[in-house]
Structure formats: C-alpha cells, structure tokens
C-alpha cells in the first residue's frame, strides 16, 4: 500500500501555510462554524453523560438519555467505584423421576475452559456469568416471600402455578414478571446444557443454582482463599425448550470451549 501526501499536518517544524494558499470562501467558514457548534453540543452532552452524577445531570436526565442511548451507552462498573470482587456462576443438574439427588454440573466451568490459558479468549466465556448475575439481580429485586416462591418445585405449568399458587392469583408485579422470565430462560439454558452433555433423559426434571465466587480482602489474602457460596437454588422445573432453539449449534459451541 502506498501513501499519497495529504494536506500538510502542521508539526513543530511545519507551521500551517498562509491563508493565501487556500481557496476558502465564506460558505466554507459558515459550514465550519456549524460543525463546531454541533461538536460542542455533542461534547457537552457526552461530558454530562460520562461524568459522575451531579444535580446538573439529574436536571437533564431525560433528554440526555434520549440522546446518548443506545449509541453512546457505556458502563464502567467492572472497575469502579470498586473493582469487581465477586462473580456469579451457574450450576445445573438433572433430577430423575424418582427425585433422587444427582451431582451439580458447573456450566460456567465449561465456559471458563475457553478462557484459562488463552491469550485471545472468546466473548462467549462470559455468558453464564452474565446470566447468573442477571438472575441474582432479578431475584434480589423481589421481596423475600416472593423470592422464596422460585424455590418451590413445579413439575408442570411453572409460570401459571407461580401466579395462581404462589401469588394466590394476584397480578404479578413488573419485578415478579421479570423474575419469571429469567427463571424460564435459565431453565431453558439448563435444559440445553444437560442435553448437550448427554445427561438428560425423557421424564427428567432440571434444577439450577447460582454460586457467588468472591475474592478475599487484600489483608486476609494469606489466610483466606476465594470463597464459593450458594446464592440461590431454584425449585425443580420441567425441561424447557424455547421456539427456534438450535440444539446442534449449542452442542458445537460447548465442544468448542474445550
């Protein structure tokens, strides 16, 4: 590839040439002023959008969101105000018809195999971590008594019975609907994962749980290691397959992690 000379880039040794060398007209200058104004307004909006919350940003929150989202969406929660010091992992298991105990299988560990000792890991190593975090958030948005409903065992018609039996037929709140959506999605993931692993047989139920893996404090690093605690265990669910699920592509992806 070859480089043609462009318009001169002023450097300490090459000051901009005089105006006489150019053919600039007033319409060009008007356009430049217009571009500068647009840029100024945009940068002012970005300054407010990016900065920590202030009374000014609160006052213009609605128009600011309308302008910045979704193209200039951003989040630095991974690093600030405190860096990430915990992650949520997903574990699943099949429950045979006799309801006997089976071992938990870590779906997150399968993804992590694609991360460890890989200099260029795939984006997909974070899916169950994200899903587990979402599930945790959705459940923690509920009052304790409503959260407890998701530990109930339903062997059929999960969502209908969560409302009719759990809420006594009351209209679910937005948060409850969100938790039901997430519960269904994680159950569908667990179904795919166990099927892909060849573990799920006809008549089995599935169950999932969320693990919180957290770092010790720096001061305790000599005496404590990474801790793992069960954050939530769901009730038993019938296998869930959502429309359009590509079972073979899911299997191929899991194989590609190893």
């Amino acid at each position: 590839m070859v480089t043609p000379p462009q318009r001169t880039e002023p450097t300490p040794n090459t000051p901009p040439p005089a105006r006489a060398q150019t053919n600039i007209r007033n319409r060009h200058r008007v356009a430049a002023v217009a571009i500068a104004v647009v840029l100024g307004v945009h940068l002012a909006a970005m300054f407010l959008w990016i900065s920590p919350r202030t009374p000014v940003t609160d006052a213009v929150d609605a128009p600011l969101r309308a302008y910045a989202l979704p193209m200039f969406q951003q989040s630095w929660s991974l690093f600030a105000p405190d860096p990430v010091h915990a992650a949520y992992y997903l574990e699943v298991r099949r429950v045979p018809q006799d309801l006997s105990e089976t071992p938990w299988v870590s779906a997150s560990a399968v993804e992590l195999a694609g991360l460890h000792h890989h200099l260029l890991p795939t984006t997909a190593t974070n899916i169950t971590n994200k899903t587990a975090s979402l599930t945790n958030e959705a459940l923690n948005d509920l009052p304790d008594d409503h959260k407890a409903l998701f530990t109930w065992h339903f062997h059929h018609d999960v969502q209908t019975r969560l409302i009719s039996e759990g809420l006594d037929g009351q209209n679910p709140t937005t948060q409850f609907n969100r938790a039901m959506t997430v519960d269904r999605a994680v159950t569908a993931y667990a179904t795919q994962f166990l099927s892909a692993q060849g573990q799920l047989v006809e008549g089995d139920l599935v169950q999932y749980r969320i693990l919180r893996v957290s770092s010790p404090d720096f001061a305790d690093r000599a005496t404590q290691g990474v801790s793992q605690t069960v954050s939530f265990t769901s009730g038993r669910r019938p296998p869930e397959v959502l429309p359009g699920q590509d079972v073979e592509a899911f299997e191929r992806a899991l194989e590609a992690f190893s």
Binding site: T122, A188, Y189
Partner: peptide, 17 residues
C-alpha cells in the same frame, strides 16, 4: 465458532431476556 451461541439460534433460550 460461537456465533450462534452468542448471536444466533443456539441462544434461543435467551430470547425473552
């Protein structure tokens, strides 16, 4: 290799999220 798992029908389980 993960295109479907991330942005395709292998992720159909997440369609309502």
């Amino acid at each position: 290799p993960f295109r479907s798992y991330l942005w395709g029908p292998a992720a159909a389980w997440s369609q309502e999220l």
